[in-house]
Structures are given as C-alpha cells and as structure tokens.
C-alpha cells in the first residue's frame, strides 16, 4: 500500500532588497537559475522557466561529487506549474519532486512579498503530500531555508 504524509510549514524572513528586486529574481530565468538551481556538487542537466500563469518550470540535476549527501549519479527533477503571479506581491505554484524518475512529493507553495523597513518581509508557505516517509516535510523545510539563504547571497552580489 502507498503511504502519504501531509505537512505544512511557513518560513518568514526579511530581505534588504525591495519586493521588486526579489520578484525579479523569481521571474527572470537567468537569475532564478543562479540561486535556485546552481549549487556545488550538482550537475544541472536542464533548466527551463516560463514565468507566467499556467507556465512551467522544469529542472533536472544530478549528483556530481563535492559534499553532496546522495549517491553518485542520483538524478532529481522538479516540475512546477505557476497558478498565480501578481507582480511584486504574490506567487502561487504547484510542484512535484522526483528522484530517478519516481515522484516523491507534490506541493503547493505560496510566496508573499510585503514592503517593510526599506526591504521586504518575505513569507513562504508550503503544503505538501510526501510519499517517502515522515521526515519529508522536515527535509523540505531545510532545503528551502538553504535556497532562501542563497537568494539573499545572490541579491547581495547582484547589488
């Protein structure tokens, strides 16, 4: 029998960059690839972003040494559909994650951008159905924490 674990989490953080700059880092394929896909120990096999409502984002990335905790050559893929895009304010998207072709989670994520103190109050809320055991949601939250840290570094460098 299949087992499904449901979970949700909220990550809230502050960025010094404006909502416009953060939104652009999600909307522009080059920018998004830089902080979202690229990373040490990963070989990006493909990355495509069509940032509009009903548009998709697809990426495939393979373990390539370094400090990567997964076995060599394990391939992960992300398939995203954008449900709602309101420039500089909100992005709602649904996505699946697969490992070596097997989907192990389906998620609904909402990003809210609020101008605050010359920067942005950023809120990511994710709801997920995880097929790979009870700690899926914890690992996902940790993954997003790292990605949102990389977004911060990207914004600082691009400044």
């Amino acid at each position: 029998m299949t087992t499904t674990t449901h979970g949700s989490f909220i990550i809230e953080r502050r960025y010094n960059a404006s909502p416009e700059r953060i939104f652009a880092a999600w909307a522009d394929p080059k920018a998004k690839r830089a902080w979202f896909a690229e990373g040490e120990g990963w070989d990006i096999r493909s990355y495509e972003l069509d940032f509009r409502e009903r548009g998709t984002e697809t990426s495939t990335f393979r373990v390539a040494g370094g400090n990567n905790p997964f076995p060599p050559n394990t391939t992960f893929s992300n398939d995203t559909v954008f449900n709602e895009i309101i420039a500089n304010e909100r992005i709602v998207f649904t996505y699946s994650m697969a490992r070596d072709g097997m989907r192990f989670s389906i998620s609904l994520a909402t990003v809210e951008l609020h101008a605050a103190d010359k920067g942005t109050r950023f809120i990511l809320t994710e709801h997920g159905a995880f097929f790979d055991g009870a700690d899926g949601v914890k690992m996902r939250e940790q993954g997003w924490q790292e990605l949102l840290g990389k977004l911060d570094e990207y914004l600082a460098k691009a400044n």
Binding site: N83, E84, T94, I106, S107, L108, H127, A129
Partner: peptide, 8 residues
C-alpha cells in the same frame, strides 16, 4: 481566483 488547493 479565490483559492489554490492540493487535494489527496
């Protein structure tokens, strides 16, 4: 648009 949901 009034909602987006994930249903299992």
């Amino acid at each position: 648009r009034t909602s987006v949901s994930l249903a299992t």
